[in-house]
Computed example of a mutant assay.
Amino acid sequence: MNGSPGHLAVNGEPRRDRVEAHRMVPELATALAGELERRADEERSLMRQARADPAPQRRHAIAERRRANAAALRTIVDHHGWPAADLVGPPASTAALMILLHAADLDFQLLCRDLIAQAAADGRCPALHHAYIADHCAVEQGQPQFYGTRVNPVTFRPYPVRRPGTLDERRRDVGLGPLDEQMRTLRAGE
């Protein structure tokens, strides 16, 4: 984070921090929540269609939707900070996380990871949100993940994990079950 305690640098420009964004008028928060949920729902719908009919144009439509969603989320973050649950509600905050996880810009994901970490520390969004984006960013950077949420789709095994001996304790701390349970569930769905 750059700048004074009251500002974060986003795209090189300072913006008001989470405390000021926290004062958003309810109508705007409701509109942002609706937009985030609509965008995430549209992507899920496109993904269901692609599973039913995996034509190349379906993959292209998903990629275009993800680009548009990431651009919209970046605008929201630039103007209002991370859309934490206390601001837009739990469903919209989760939708924002899903959009972020599918964004192609690792620098943006890293910026949001830090905003989500602060929001989770403040109790404004679930710690689980930070676990997912922290693991995502670690794997994308070629580093071991912290919570074991990312699974290699080729080997169907978790990507490397930092300090595996304490993994299940960290997972429990953010509301996840033991990794072995997650893997059994994933394998049952194959």
Rank of each mutant, 00 (worst) to 15 (best):
Met1Glu: 15
Asn2Ser: 13
Leu8Ala: 09
Asn11His: 12
Pro14Arg: 13
Arg15Ile: 12
Arg15Pro: 13
Arg15Val: 12
Arg16Val: 05
Val19Glu: 13
Glu20Thr: 08
Val25Pro: 12
Val25Leu: 14
Glu27Lys: 06
Thr30Leu: 05
Thr30Met: 09
Ala31Trp: 13
Ala33Phe: 02
Glu35Ala: 10
Leu36Ala: 11
Leu36Phe: 01
Leu36Ser: 07
Ala40Ser: 15
Asp41Glu: 11
Glu42Leu: 02
Arg48Pro: 00
Arg48Lys: 07
Ala50Val: 00
Ala52Asn: 07
Ala52Tyr: 00
Pro56Trp: 13
Arg58Tyr: 01
Arg58Asn: 05
Ala61Phe: 02
Ala61Met: 02
Ile62Thr: 02
Ala63Thr: 07
Ala63Pro: 01
Arg66Ser: 03
Arg67His: 11
Ala68His: 10
Ala68Asp: 14
Ala70Lys: 07
Ala71Glu: 13
Arg74Gly: 11
Gly81Ala: 06
Pro83His: 09
Ala84Ile: 02
Ala85Phe: 02
Asp86Thr: 12
Asp86Gln: 06
Val88Phe: 01
Pro90Leu: 12
Ala92Gln: 04
Ser93Gln: 07
Thr94Ile: 02
Ala95Pro: 01
Met98Lys: 08
Leu100Arg: 02
Ala103Trp: 00
Asp105Arg: 06
Gln109Leu: 10
Ala119Asn: 08
Ala119Arg: 15
Asp122Ser: 11
Pro126Ala: 15
Pro126Ser: 15
Pro126Arg: 15
His129Cys: 08
His130Arg: 07
Ala134Ile: 02
Asp135Gln: 09
Val139Glu: 04
Val139Trp: 11
Gly142His: 08
Gln143Trp: 14
Pro144Ala: 09
Tyr147Glu: 08
Tyr147Asn: 10
Tyr147Arg: 11
Gly148Pro: 03
Thr149Ala: 11
Thr149Arg: 12
Asn152Val: 05
Thr155Phe: 03
Phe156Cys: 13
Pro158Glu: 09
Pro158Lys: 14
Tyr159Asp: 03
Pro160Phe: 13
Arg163Gly: 07
Pro164Glu: 14
Thr166Pro: 00
Glu169Arg: 06
Glu169Phe: 01
Val174Trp: 13
Gly175Thr: 05
Leu176Arg: 10
Pro178Phe: 05
Asp180His: 08
Gln182Cys: 03
Thr185Trp: 00
Thr185Ser: 01
Arg187Cys: 01
Arg187Val: 01
